[in-house]
Design a protein around this nucleic acid. Structure first.
Lengths: 208, 208
DNA sequence: TGAGTAGATGACTGGTGGGTCAGTTATTTT
DNA sequence: AAAATAACTGACCCACCAGTCATCTACTCA
């Protein structure tokens, strides 16, 4: 019964955390927090269950790490957009279409968004982190651009924040739709088309 | 130790199911499916855990009953709207504002919506039921009204279904917002104001 | 009023899965 | 080459809770 050649495992402490996070994201996204089995995460990450505990304290800790990990690229995007000096219409056009084509369509993102929504009662810190690092800065940025455009007379009067919700709403709906209704046979939404048509409609409707 | 006066329990088979459903809705909405404790449901319904099993087969069965129960009034509403012969603009105006003031604001509804989203992987039947009895008829009705308005030249060209998503999006966002971000300190959305401003914007943007 | 019965109780159980740790194996150091 | 080290394994433990059932109690009706 002596195993020939291939070693039973390798020591790769540098790569393990990222691999475990990737596997955990998959399993959490598929099953939700409670139904996710650590045994399954370990299997997909190619390690034993015990190894998970070398890198993460508890299941909840692993979950938090998954969500935090998924946030970072989005923060970069928002920061970049906020720093670039741009005028309202083109910024919103480019921003929303990019959001539609790159973010909303990415199952890893919509999966995490769904997780945050689903587990917000049992893990309110995650909803809080998500809110203050992604949602509020994003909405804040849009509101500011809209308010500036109003001063220049390019946009009619109205609450800038509500305009921002009006623009973002269908993107949120799309993520919910993809995660909730498409798996049970709902006709998929063409998110990019939706974003474009919605932009045409709302931008026209926002003119004075 | 003989209890004087008040009996230990009463036999009220007629009222129990509704009371259990109400209690279960509360607990499921607060905790989600897995974290919800049947002991807690029983306590709030004023019965013992065993009594639950006189009326519902399993926890999942109880959960399904809660969701089905919450759907029915909405089906009635949609049916009524579909049967009333109405023209596009006033119908959408009245419909969306009613939705905002009565449905989106009702925590019992937003709670169940959140549950359906959260548990759609482990209970896809619920997502399916919700989709075919509420979502699809609702979207279908709106799309039809929009398509008819396009024929009459009241609305510019564009995919009627995407217009419908554009109108509904912010309502979905509002429910998610209330259930997910408000509990962690997010500034509440005035849903009726949002609905009104969004209607003004989108209806103007939909004109030819 | 008392026998019959359906409604209701609550202590109990069994499966499940998060978390532990004594021991094993790959790798580094001496 | 041997010792030292740290990554990793996997069998085990035990808390937890959905679901059960022997028993009891309220109500009915003859």
């Amino acid at each position: 019964m002596l195993p020939a050649g291939e070693p039973k495992f390798r020591r790769r402490p540098g790569d393990r955390p990222a691999e475990i996070l990737a596997a955990a994201l998959e399993v959490f996204a598929e099953r939700g927090f409670h139904s996710a089995r650590l045994e399954e995460v370990a299997k997909r990450a190619g390690v034993s269950k015990g190894a998970l505990y070398l890198y993460f304290e508890t299941k909840a800790d692993l979950f938090r790490a998954v969500v935090r990990d998924a946030i970072s690229p989005n923060i970069e995007r928002i920061k970049a957009m906020a720093e670039a000096q741009v005028s309202f219409e083109p910024a919103v056009r480019i921003g929303l279409v990019m959001l539609a084509s790159r973010v909303v369509t990415d199952r890893r993102v919509s999966g995490v968004v769904k997780l945050v929504i689903a587990e917000s009662r049992t893990h309110p810190e995650l909803a809080a982190i998500w809110h203050e690092t992604v949602v509020e800065p994003g909405i804040g940025l849009m509101s500011r651009l809209i308010a500036e455009a109003q001063v220049r007379g390019e946009v009619r009067e109205g609450d800038p924040r509500l305009f921002a919700f009006g623009l973002m709403g269908p993107m949120v709906l799309s993520m919910v739709w993809r995660e909730t209704f498409e798996p049970v046979g709902a006709q998929p939404i063409d998110v990019v088309k939706l974003a474009e048509q919605h932009l045409d409609t709302v931008l026209q409707g926002m003119r004075p």
